[in-house]
Design a protein around this nucleic acid. Structure first.
Lengths: 154, 154
DNA sequence: TTATTTTATTAGGCGAGGCTAATTTTCTTT
DNA sequence: AAAGAAAATTAGCCTCGCCTAATAAAATAA
């Protein structure tokens, strides 16, 4: 736990992007980050400098980027927040996949730890058990929602 | 529906504050807004000018502030997003009340419409019925969470 | 009504985070 | 190895949103 720094939403996004690129190909080039985030190269440079100052990435000018141990922890945390939100939206609320992804992207930065933990537990609880209470309730809600909202969804 | 403008998080916060102050005392003074939002008076002036430009508030220098029809719609929407999040956190996830409030404050700006609608429906569904599936599941989850997280909560 | 206090606005500054254009470094060809 | 292409960095500018200090307007007291 390193509650010291407190990253901006923007830097969290960069960290998250680096995390994913690293998983796909060992290390990230500034180009990849820019492409994924739809941001100019110079913005990436600025962000990399900020992240390096905070010791969250291994970086020196013109070099490839990798996460430090600390950086990987923080990035992993962001990814976890993102994923639990997306899963909740899709698997429980049965929301549109694209909207869920977009929502998760924006909300991930604001989800407090304690609530994230509960949400993870909640989604697990509802998804667990082939025919447990959870799964059934999710199904029932799906029907309830479609029944009570006979507008655009159908 | 006025999806035209797209307010910043900050302006949404101001609108929300004005909404609540207006409910409590007819109209809002800049002072009240500053106090509630813990922001300087000059910041309030700037925000009021921006909101007035967008026709979301009735305002002229040194005057009291009220919401326009459009402003009330937008503010109401923000409040609705805030409230459904808080209720979900407290009533369903059984999160700490303070943390729920804080989380709702930050996440309210990012909650997409379609997901908000589903979430409202979901919370209603779980809370409805004196002894329906919903209420019981919430209770069961509460116990599940406490059982599987024998750490800080107890 | 004039003086005092309170409230609001303006002026000017700061940092974050984005952009484009110009420049530098590195990589790839030939 | 030298030339050209590609990638990264710097320089310089912009918008937001906040701040403090200084000023102006309004409200309250004397």
């Amino acid at each position: 736990m390193s509650p010291g720094s407190s990253l901006s939403d923007s830097l969290e996004d960069y960290l998250e992007a680096i995390f994913h690129i690293e998983q796909a190909k060992q290390a990230a080039r500034a180009k990849d980050i820019a492409g994924r985030m739809k941001v100019s190269g110079s913005s990436v440079t600025g962000a990399l400098q900020a992240l390096a100052r905070r010791k969250l990435i291994n970086y020196s000018p013109y070099d490839l980027v990798t996460l430090t141990e600390k950086g990987r922890e923080v990035a992993g945390d962001v990814v976890r927040r993102h994923d639990v939100l997306r899963r909740f939206f899709v698997d429980v609320l049965d929301a549109d996949s694209r909207e869920a992804e977009k929502g998760a992207c924006r909300m991930e930065h604001a989800l407090p730890r304690g609530i994230m933990e509960r949400l993870i537990s909640f989604v697990e609880y509802l998804s667990a058990g082939r025919k447990g209470e959870g799964r059934r309730l999710v199904e029932d809600f799906k029907h309830y929602y479609e029944r009570t909202n006979k507008k655009k969804t159908d």
